[in-house]
Nucleic acid binder design. Structure first.
Lengths: 211, 211
DNA sequence: TGTTGATTTGAATCGTGATTCACTCCTTGC
DNA sequence: GCAAGGAGTGAATCACGATTCAAATCAACA
Protein backbone atom coordinates (compact mmCIF):
# COMPACT_ATOMS: atom_id res chain seq x y z
CA UNK A 1 0.00 0.00 0.00
CA UNK A 2 2.38 2.69 -1.15
CA UNK A 3 1.61 6.41 -1.11
CA UNK A 4 -0.85 7.43 1.49
CA UNK A 5 -1.76 11.16 1.72
CA UNK A 6 -0.08 12.54 4.81
CA UNK A 7 -0.71 15.58 6.99
CA UNK A 8 1.83 17.61 5.05
CA UNK A 9 0.26 16.65 1.76
CA UNK A 10 -3.14 17.66 2.98
CA UNK A 11 -1.81 20.96 4.24
CA UNK A 12 -0.15 21.63 0.92
CA UNK A 13 -3.43 20.97 -0.80
CA UNK A 14 -5.23 23.40 1.47
CA UNK A 15 -2.54 25.98 0.90
CA UNK A 16 -2.73 25.56 -2.82
CA UNK A 17 -6.47 25.86 -2.80
CA UNK A 18 -6.16 28.96 -0.71
CA UNK A 19 -3.58 30.29 -3.12
CA UNK A 20 -6.06 30.06 -5.96
CA UNK A 21 -8.65 31.89 -3.90
CA UNK A 22 -6.21 34.65 -3.03
CA UNK A 23 -5.10 34.96 -6.61
CA UNK A 24 -8.68 35.23 -7.78
CA UNK A 25 -9.46 37.75 -5.10
CA UNK A 26 -6.50 39.84 -6.13
CA UNK A 27 -7.65 39.83 -9.73
CA UNK A 28 -11.18 40.75 -8.70
CA UNK A 29 -9.96 43.57 -6.49
CA UNK A 30 -7.88 44.90 -9.37
CA UNK A 31 -10.21 44.48 -12.31
CA UNK A 32 -13.41 42.76 -11.29
CA UNK A 33 -14.72 39.26 -11.72
CA UNK A 34 -14.45 39.47 -15.44
CA UNK A 35 -10.69 39.61 -15.17
CA UNK A 36 -10.52 36.53 -12.98
CA UNK A 37 -10.34 34.02 -15.81
CA UNK A 38 -9.21 30.52 -14.96
CA UNK A 39 -6.08 31.07 -17.00
CA UNK A 40 -5.23 34.27 -15.13
CA UNK A 41 -5.81 32.67 -11.76
CA UNK A 42 -3.62 29.71 -12.65
CA UNK A 43 -0.91 31.96 -14.02
CA UNK A 44 -0.78 33.99 -10.81
CA UNK A 45 -0.04 30.80 -8.93
CA UNK A 46 2.42 29.51 -11.52
CA UNK A 47 0.08 26.58 -11.90
CA UNK A 48 -1.73 25.10 -14.85
CA UNK A 49 -5.32 25.67 -15.80
CA UNK A 50 -6.11 22.06 -15.12
CA UNK A 51 -4.90 22.10 -11.54
CA UNK A 52 -7.48 24.75 -10.68
CA UNK A 53 -10.04 22.12 -11.50
CA UNK A 54 -8.66 19.64 -9.03
CA UNK A 55 -9.51 22.12 -6.28
CA UNK A 56 -12.74 23.60 -7.60
CA UNK A 57 -15.66 22.14 -9.49
CA UNK A 58 -15.93 25.14 -11.74
CA UNK A 59 -14.87 28.73 -12.14
CA UNK A 60 -18.30 29.80 -10.96
CA UNK A 61 -17.93 28.03 -7.65
CA UNK A 62 -14.47 29.42 -7.18
CA UNK A 63 -15.70 32.94 -7.80
CA UNK A 64 -18.71 32.40 -5.60
CA UNK A 65 -16.32 31.47 -2.81
CA UNK A 66 -14.25 34.57 -3.48
CA UNK A 67 -17.37 36.67 -3.38
CA UNK A 68 -18.53 35.09 -0.17
CA UNK A 69 -15.25 35.66 1.61
CA UNK A 70 -14.82 39.23 0.43
CA UNK A 71 -18.43 40.04 1.19
CA UNK A 72 -18.49 38.50 4.61
CA UNK A 73 -15.38 40.42 5.51
CA UNK A 74 -17.23 43.62 4.65
CA UNK A 75 -20.30 42.54 6.54
CA UNK A 76 -18.21 41.71 9.59
CA UNK A 77 -16.67 45.16 9.58
CA UNK A 78 -20.07 46.78 9.41
CA UNK A 79 -21.47 44.55 12.11
CA UNK A 80 -18.52 45.36 14.35
CA UNK A 81 -18.88 49.08 13.76
CA UNK A 82 -22.58 48.94 14.48
CA UNK A 83 -21.97 46.99 17.65
CA UNK A 84 -19.32 49.48 18.78
CA UNK A 85 -21.59 52.45 18.19
CA UNK A 86 -23.81 53.67 21.01
CA UNK A 87 -27.14 52.05 21.73
CA UNK A 88 -28.97 54.89 20.02
CA UNK A 89 -30.50 53.54 16.82
CA UNK A 90 -29.64 56.68 14.89
CA UNK A 91 -25.98 56.35 15.78
CA UNK A 92 -25.97 52.75 14.75
CA UNK A 93 -27.63 53.32 11.41
CA UNK A 94 -25.25 56.23 10.92
CA UNK A 95 -22.33 53.88 11.44
CA UNK A 96 -23.79 51.38 9.02
CA UNK A 97 -24.01 54.07 6.39
CA UNK A 98 -20.62 55.53 7.17
CA UNK A 99 -18.67 52.29 7.18
CA UNK A 100 -20.46 50.89 4.17
CA UNK A 101 -19.91 53.95 2.05
CA UNK A 102 -16.44 54.64 3.41
CA UNK A 103 -15.28 51.14 2.55
CA UNK A 104 -16.85 51.36 -0.87
CA UNK A 105 -15.30 54.71 -1.65
CA UNK A 106 -11.86 53.59 -0.56
CA UNK A 107 -11.86 50.16 -2.19
CA UNK A 108 -13.68 51.19 -5.28
CA UNK A 109 -12.86 48.34 -7.62
CA UNK A 110 -13.81 45.70 -5.11
CA UNK A 111 -16.93 47.60 -4.11
CA UNK A 112 -17.94 47.84 -7.72
CA UNK A 113 -17.37 44.13 -8.18
CA UNK A 114 -19.37 43.26 -5.08
CA UNK A 115 -22.21 45.68 -5.69
CA UNK A 116 -22.62 46.30 -9.37
CA UNK A 117 -20.50 44.26 -11.74
CA UNK A 118 -22.53 41.88 -13.91
CA UNK A 119 -21.75 38.35 -12.79
CA UNK A 120 -22.92 34.84 -13.49
CA UNK A 121 -26.11 33.64 -11.82
CA UNK A 122 -24.16 31.53 -9.34
CA UNK A 123 -22.24 34.55 -8.12
CA UNK A 124 -25.33 36.71 -8.31
CA UNK A 125 -26.93 34.37 -5.81
CA UNK A 126 -24.14 35.23 -3.37
CA UNK A 127 -24.72 38.90 -4.02
CA UNK A 128 -28.35 38.49 -3.09
CA UNK A 129 -27.32 37.06 0.26
CA UNK A 130 -24.77 39.81 0.71
CA UNK A 131 -27.23 42.60 -0.04
CA UNK A 132 -29.88 41.18 2.17
CA UNK A 133 -27.38 40.87 5.00
CA UNK A 134 -26.96 44.61 4.96
CA UNK A 135 -30.67 45.09 4.71
CA UNK A 136 -31.15 42.73 7.64
CA UNK A 137 -28.74 44.69 9.79
CA UNK A 138 -30.45 47.92 8.85
CA UNK A 139 -33.87 46.47 9.43
CA UNK A 140 -32.98 45.37 12.94
CA UNK A 141 -31.60 48.77 13.81
CA UNK A 142 -34.66 50.49 12.41
CA UNK A 143 -36.92 48.14 14.32
CA UNK A 144 -35.11 49.11 17.51
CA UNK A 145 -35.32 52.75 16.58
CA UNK A 146 -39.05 52.44 16.03
CA UNK A 147 -39.49 50.74 19.38
CA UNK A 148 -37.57 53.44 21.18
CA UNK A 149 -39.35 56.17 19.28
CA UNK A 150 -36.14 57.44 17.70
CA UNK A 151 -37.62 56.99 14.24
CA UNK A 152 -40.95 57.93 12.75
CA UNK A 153 -43.35 54.97 12.29
CA UNK A 154 -42.73 53.10 9.06
CA UNK A 155 -42.15 49.66 7.57
CA UNK A 156 -38.71 48.67 8.81
CA UNK A 157 -37.89 46.34 5.93
CA UNK A 158 -38.92 48.80 3.28
CA UNK A 159 -37.05 51.59 4.99
CA UNK A 160 -33.90 49.52 5.27
CA UNK A 161 -34.07 48.60 1.57
CA UNK A 162 -34.61 52.20 0.68
CA UNK A 163 -31.66 53.29 2.80
CA UNK A 164 -29.40 50.74 1.14
CA UNK A 165 -30.68 51.77 -2.26
CA UNK A 166 -30.17 55.45 -1.57
CA UNK A 167 -26.65 54.80 -0.37
CA UNK A 168 -25.77 52.54 -3.30
CA UNK A 169 -27.12 54.89 -5.91
CA UNK A 170 -25.41 57.87 -4.37
CA UNK A 171 -22.17 55.90 -4.44
CA UNK A 172 -22.36 54.34 -7.87
CA UNK A 173 -21.25 57.43 -9.70
CA UNK A 174 -18.11 57.53 -7.58
CA UNK A 175 -17.07 53.93 -7.80
CA UNK A 176 -17.76 53.14 -11.44
CA UNK A 177 -14.58 51.69 -12.94
CA UNK A 178 -14.11 54.57 -15.36
CA UNK A 179 -14.89 57.35 -12.91
CA UNK A 180 -12.13 59.69 -11.78
CA UNK A 181 -10.43 59.25 -8.44
CA UNK A 182 -12.44 61.43 -6.05
CA UNK A 183 -10.79 63.62 -3.43
CA UNK A 184 -11.11 62.95 0.27
CA UNK A 185 -13.20 66.09 0.70
CA UNK A 186 -15.67 65.03 -1.95
CA UNK A 187 -16.03 61.66 -0.31
CA UNK A 188 -16.77 63.26 3.03
CA UNK A 189 -19.44 65.44 1.46
CA UNK A 190 -21.07 62.51 -0.28
CA UNK A 191 -21.09 60.43 2.88
CA UNK A 192 -22.47 63.25 4.95
CA UNK A 193 -25.09 64.03 2.34
CA UNK A 194 -26.27 60.44 2.26
CA UNK A 195 -26.29 60.23 6.01
CA UNK A 196 -28.48 63.27 6.48
CA UNK A 197 -30.79 62.19 3.66
CA UNK A 198 -31.34 58.86 5.39
CA UNK A 199 -31.68 60.44 8.81
CA UNK A 200 -34.42 62.70 7.55
CA UNK A 201 -36.12 59.79 5.83
CA UNK A 202 -36.08 57.78 9.02
CA UNK A 203 -37.32 60.78 10.93
CA UNK A 204 -34.44 60.87 13.38
CA UNK A 205 -35.67 63.05 16.21
CA UNK A 206 -32.51 65.10 16.66
CA UNK A 207 -30.66 66.64 13.76
CA UNK A 208 -27.27 65.07 14.44
CA UNK A 209 -25.60 68.21 13.15
CA UNK A 210 -23.61 68.73 9.99
CA UNK A 211 -20.29 66.86 10.24
CA UNK B 1 -30.53 51.16 -65.86
CA UNK B 2 -32.99 48.59 -64.55
CA UNK B 3 -34.00 48.31 -60.93
CA UNK B 4 -33.99 51.52 -59.08
CA UNK B 5 -35.14 51.44 -55.44
CA UNK B 6 -38.59 53.01 -55.34
CA UNK B 7 -40.67 54.62 -52.64
CA UNK B 8 -42.45 51.36 -51.94
CA UNK B 9 -39.17 49.51 -51.65
CA UNK B 10 -37.87 52.04 -49.23
CA UNK B 11 -41.02 51.86 -47.16
CA UNK B 12 -40.81 48.09 -47.07
CA UNK B 13 -37.27 48.36 -45.85
CA UNK B 14 -38.30 50.74 -43.08
CA UNK B 15 -41.16 48.46 -42.13
CA UNK B 16 -38.92 45.46 -42.04
CA UNK B 17 -36.41 47.25 -39.91
CA UNK B 18 -39.18 48.29 -37.60
CA UNK B 19 -40.43 44.73 -37.50
CA UNK B 20 -37.08 43.56 -36.18
CA UNK B 21 -37.17 46.24 -33.54
CA UNK B 22 -40.68 45.28 -32.48
CA UNK B 23 -39.79 41.62 -32.42
CA UNK B 24 -36.77 42.31 -30.27
CA UNK B 25 -38.77 44.51 -27.98
CA UNK B 26 -41.36 41.79 -27.56
CA UNK B 27 -38.70 39.29 -26.64
CA UNK B 28 -37.13 41.71 -24.17
CA UNK B 29 -40.50 42.45 -22.60
CA UNK B 30 -41.14 38.74 -22.22
CA UNK B 31 -37.76 37.45 -21.11
CA UNK B 32 -35.18 40.19 -21.07
CA UNK B 33 -32.35 41.13 -23.37
CA UNK B 34 -30.73 37.78 -22.95
CA UNK B 35 -33.63 36.16 -24.77
CA UNK B 36 -33.40 38.52 -27.70
CA UNK B 37 -30.87 36.49 -29.67
CA UNK B 38 -30.44 37.31 -33.30
CA UNK B 39 -31.91 33.94 -34.21
CA UNK B 40 -35.00 34.52 -32.07
CA UNK B 41 -35.54 38.00 -33.48
CA UNK B 42 -35.26 36.73 -37.04
CA UNK B 43 -37.57 33.80 -36.33
CA UNK B 44 -40.25 36.12 -34.97
CA UNK B 45 -40.24 37.96 -38.29
CA UNK B 46 -40.05 34.80 -40.38
CA UNK B 47 -36.78 36.15 -41.67
CA UNK B 48 -33.29 34.79 -41.72
CA UNK B 49 -30.49 35.61 -39.34
CA UNK B 50 -28.55 37.25 -42.09
CA UNK B 51 -31.25 39.73 -43.03
CA UNK B 52 -31.11 41.22 -39.56
CA UNK B 53 -27.60 42.25 -40.45
CA UNK B 54 -28.68 44.15 -43.51
CA UNK B 55 -30.65 46.45 -41.24
CA UNK B 56 -28.38 46.62 -38.22
CA UNK B 57 -24.62 46.68 -37.81
CA UNK B 58 -24.73 44.34 -34.88
CA UNK B 59 -26.99 42.82 -32.29
CA UNK B 60 -25.66 45.30 -29.76
CA UNK B 61 -26.78 48.27 -31.78
CA UNK B 62 -30.15 46.72 -32.40
CA UNK B 63 -30.63 46.13 -28.69
CA UNK B 64 -29.36 49.59 -27.87
CA UNK B 65 -32.05 50.98 -30.13
CA UNK B 66 -34.67 48.81 -28.46
CA UNK B 67 -33.49 50.02 -25.10
CA UNK B 68 -33.56 53.63 -26.19
CA UNK B 69 -37.09 53.45 -27.52
CA UNK B 70 -38.50 51.54 -24.57
CA UNK B 71 -36.71 53.80 -22.12
CA UNK B 72 -37.68 57.03 -23.75
CA UNK B 73 -41.29 55.94 -23.76
CA UNK B 74 -41.04 55.49 -20.01
CA UNK B 75 -39.31 58.80 -19.57
CA UNK B 76 -41.97 60.54 -21.62
CA UNK B 77 -44.73 59.14 -19.47
CA UNK B 78 -42.98 60.34 -16.35
CA UNK B 79 -42.31 63.74 -17.81
CA UNK B 80 -45.93 64.08 -18.83
CA UNK B 81 -47.17 63.04 -15.41
CA UNK B 82 -44.82 65.47 -13.73
CA UNK B 83 -45.95 68.26 -16.02
CA UNK B 84 -49.60 67.46 -15.35
CA UNK B 85 -49.12 67.49 -11.59
CA UNK B 86 -49.58 70.74 -9.71
CA UNK B 87 -46.80 73.27 -9.46
CA UNK B 88 -45.98 72.17 -5.94
CA UNK B 89 -42.61 70.41 -6.01
CA UNK B 90 -43.76 67.77 -3.57
CA UNK B 91 -46.67 66.82 -5.79
CA UNK B 92 -44.41 66.62 -8.78
CA UNK B 93 -41.77 64.45 -7.13
CA UNK B 94 -44.64 62.35 -5.80
CA UNK B 95 -45.84 61.82 -9.34
CA UNK B 96 -42.35 60.92 -10.49
CA UNK B 97 -42.15 58.28 -7.81
CA UNK B 98 -45.67 57.02 -8.37
CA UNK B 99 -45.50 56.69 -12.13
CA UNK B 100 -42.01 55.27 -12.11
CA UNK B 101 -42.81 52.61 -9.57
CA UNK B 102 -46.29 51.95 -10.88
CA UNK B 103 -44.99 51.32 -14.38
CA UNK B 104 -42.22 49.12 -13.04
CA UNK B 105 -44.54 47.06 -10.88
CA UNK B 106 -47.01 46.54 -13.70
CA UNK B 107 -44.51 45.80 -16.46
CA UNK B 108 -42.15 43.86 -14.34
CA UNK B 109 -40.14 42.01 -16.97
CA UNK B 110 -39.48 45.11 -18.99
CA UNK B 111 -38.69 47.11 -15.88
CA UNK B 112 -36.24 44.49 -14.81
CA UNK B 113 -34.62 44.52 -18.22
CA UNK B 114 -34.36 48.30 -18.26
CA UNK B 115 -33.21 48.70 -14.70
CA UNK B 116 -31.31 45.65 -13.59
CA UNK B 117 -30.61 42.98 -16.18
CA UNK B 118 -26.92 42.57 -16.98
CA UNK B 119 -26.36 43.80 -20.51
CA UNK B 120 -23.50 44.43 -22.87
CA UNK B 121 -21.49 47.64 -22.46
CA UNK B 122 -23.15 49.22 -25.48
CA UNK B 123 -26.59 48.75 -24.00
CA UNK B 124 -25.31 49.67 -20.56
CA UNK B 125 -24.35 53.03 -21.99
CA UNK B 126 -27.99 53.59 -22.90
CA UNK B 127 -29.01 52.62 -19.41
CA UNK B 128 -26.70 55.26 -18.02
CA UNK B 129 -28.46 57.88 -20.07
CA UNK B 130 -31.84 56.52 -19.06
CA UNK B 131 -31.03 56.54 -15.37
CA UNK B 132 -29.60 59.98 -15.45
CA UNK B 133 -32.69 61.24 -17.25
CA UNK B 134 -34.76 60.27 -14.25
CA UNK B 135 -32.21 61.77 -11.95
CA UNK B 136 -32.23 64.96 -14.00
CA UNK B 137 -36.00 65.25 -13.77
CA UNK B 138 -35.86 64.65 -10.04
CA UNK B 139 -33.02 67.09 -9.60
CA UNK B 140 -34.91 69.86 -11.33
CA UNK B 141 -38.00 69.30 -9.21
CA UNK B 142 -35.92 69.24 -6.06
CA UNK B 143 -34.16 72.42 -7.09
CA UNK B 144 -37.54 74.07 -7.51
CA UNK B 145 -38.67 72.69 -4.19
CA UNK B 146 -35.58 74.09 -2.52
CA UNK B 147 -36.16 77.49 -4.07
CA UNK B 148 -39.75 77.59 -2.92
CA UNK B 149 -38.85 76.32 0.52
CA UNK B 150 -40.92 73.16 0.12
CA UNK B 151 -37.89 71.01 0.83
CA UNK B 152 -35.22 71.15 3.47
CA UNK B 153 -31.85 72.49 2.21
CA UNK B 154 -29.72 69.78 0.62
CA UNK B 155 -27.71 68.89 -2.47
CA UNK B 156 -30.32 68.46 -5.18
CA UNK B 157 -28.30 66.06 -7.32
CA UNK B 158 -27.39 63.82 -4.44
CA UNK B 159 -30.94 63.86 -3.17
CA UNK B 160 -32.33 62.96 -6.56
CA UNK B 161 -29.89 60.06 -6.90
CA UNK B 162 -30.77 58.87 -3.47
CA UNK B 163 -34.48 59.05 -4.24
CA UNK B 164 -34.02 57.02 -7.41
CA UNK B 165 -31.87 54.54 -5.55
CA UNK B 166 -34.35 54.19 -2.73
CA UNK B 167 -37.17 53.63 -5.17
CA UNK B 168 -35.22 51.14 -7.26
CA UNK B 169 -34.03 49.12 -4.34
CA UNK B 170 -37.47 49.04 -2.79
CA UNK B 171 -38.80 47.77 -6.11
CA UNK B 172 -36.15 45.25 -7.01
CA UNK B 173 -37.50 42.56 -4.75
CA UNK B 174 -40.86 42.83 -6.45
CA UNK B 175 -39.76 42.82 -10.04
CA UNK B 176 -37.02 40.20 -10.00
CA UNK B 177 -37.81 37.64 -12.70
CA UNK B 178 -38.28 34.80 -10.26
CA UNK B 179 -40.33 36.74 -7.72
CA UNK B 180 -43.99 35.92 -7.23
CA UNK B 181 -46.71 38.02 -8.82
CA UNK B 182 -47.57 40.63 -6.18
CA UNK B 183 -51.13 41.64 -5.39
CA UNK B 184 -52.48 45.07 -6.20
CA UNK B 185 -52.74 45.87 -2.50
CA UNK B 186 -49.12 45.01 -1.87
CA UNK B 187 -48.08 47.22 -4.74
CA UNK B 188 -50.03 50.13 -3.33
CA UNK B 189 -48.37 49.68 0.04
CA UNK B 190 -44.91 49.53 -1.46
CA UNK B 191 -45.51 52.64 -3.54
CA UNK B 192 -46.96 54.54 -0.63
CA UNK B 193 -44.12 53.42 1.64
CA UNK B 194 -41.52 54.60 -0.84
CA UNK B 195 -43.32 57.86 -1.37
CA UNK B 196 -43.45 58.74 2.30
CA UNK B 197 -39.86 57.65 2.82
CA UNK B 198 -38.74 60.02 0.09
CA UNK B 199 -41.01 62.82 1.29
CA UNK B 200 -39.51 62.63 4.73
CA UNK B 201 -36.01 62.54 3.27
CA UNK B 202 -36.70 65.64 1.22
CA UNK B 203 -38.24 67.31 4.24
CA UNK B 204 -41.58 67.98 2.59
CA UNK B 205 -43.22 70.57 4.79
CA UNK B 206 -46.69 69.01 4.88
CA UNK B 207 -47.23 65.31 5.54
CA UNK B 208 -49.24 64.58 2.42
CA UNK B 209 -51.28 62.04 4.33
CA UNK B 210 -51.42 58.30 3.97
CA UNK B 211 -52.96 57.39 0.59
C1' DT C 1 -38.59 38.53 -71.16
C1' DG C 2 -33.83 39.72 -69.95
C1' DT C 3 -30.80 42.39 -67.37
C1' DT C 4 -29.19 44.56 -63.27
C1' DG C 5 -28.65 45.16 -58.85
C1' DA C 6 -30.96 44.93 -54.27
C1' DT C 7 -32.32 41.61 -50.88
C1' DT C 8 -32.51 37.27 -48.53
C1' DT C 9 -30.76 33.01 -47.06
C1' DG C 10 -28.62 29.87 -43.61
C1' DA C 11 -24.70 26.92 -43.24
C1' DA C 12 -20.05 27.78 -42.17
C1' DT C 13 -16.99 30.47 -39.46
C1' DC C 14 -15.38 33.12 -35.51
C1' DG C 15 -14.37 34.44 -30.83
C1' DT C 16 -13.94 33.69 -26.30
C1' DG C 17 -13.13 31.27 -22.42
C1' DA C 18 -14.52 27.26 -19.63
C1' DT C 19 -13.71 22.45 -19.24
C1' DT C 20 -11.63 17.88 -20.10
C1' DC C 21 -8.29 14.17 -20.05
C1' DA C 22 -4.37 11.32 -21.63
C1' DC C 23 -0.06 11.82 -20.17
C1' DT C 24 3.90 13.04 -17.22
C1' DC C 25 5.84 14.03 -12.83
C1' DC C 26 5.89 13.41 -7.75
C1' DT C 27 5.48 11.17 -3.02
C1' DT C 28 4.99 7.63 -0.04
C1' DG C 29 5.79 3.23 2.02
C1' DC C 30 8.12 -0.93 1.37
C1' DG D 1 15.20 1.44 -5.79
C1' DC D 2 10.54 0.62 -6.96
C1' DA D 3 5.54 0.12 -7.33
C1' DA D 4 1.04 2.54 -6.57
C1' DG D 5 -1.47 6.25 -6.72
C1' DG D 6 -2.08 11.23 -6.16
C1' DA D 7 -1.12 15.79 -8.58
C1' DG D 8 -0.02 18.73 -12.25
C1' DT D 9 0.03 19.82 -17.17
C1' DG D 10 -1.74 22.22 -21.25
C1' DA D 11 -3.27 21.26 -25.86
C1' DA D 12 -7.57 19.78 -27.54
C1' DT D 13 -12.37 20.11 -27.07
C1' DC D 14 -16.68 22.10 -26.11
C1' DA D 15 -20.42 25.58 -25.80
C1' DC D 16 -22.82 29.08 -27.57
C1' DG D 17 -24.34 32.71 -29.91
C1' DA D 18 -22.73 36.51 -33.03
C1' DT D 19 -21.20 37.34 -37.59
C1' DT D 20 -20.05 36.49 -42.47
C1' DC D 21 -20.72 35.64 -47.32
C1' DA D 22 -21.37 33.11 -51.69
C1' DA D 23 -25.27 31.63 -53.82
C1' DA D 24 -30.18 32.06 -54.64
C1' DT D 25 -34.07 34.91 -55.11
C1' DC D 26 -36.60 38.90 -56.10
C1' DA D 27 -38.02 43.61 -58.07
C1' DA D 28 -37.82 47.18 -61.47
C1' DC D 29 -37.44 48.61 -65.92
C1' DA D 30 -36.60 48.51 -71.16
Amino acid sequence: MPYRPTALTRQNALDKRDGFLRAARGLVAADGFKAATVAAIAARCQASVGSVYSYFDSRDRLLAEVFRSAASHEIDLVRAAVADAGQQASERIGELIRIFSGRALHGRRMAWALLFEPVSPVVEAERLVYRSSYTDIGEQIIRDGLASGDFVPQDARLASSAVMGAVSEALVGWIRPDSAEPSEIELECVMEGIRSFCFRALGVSYAGGIR
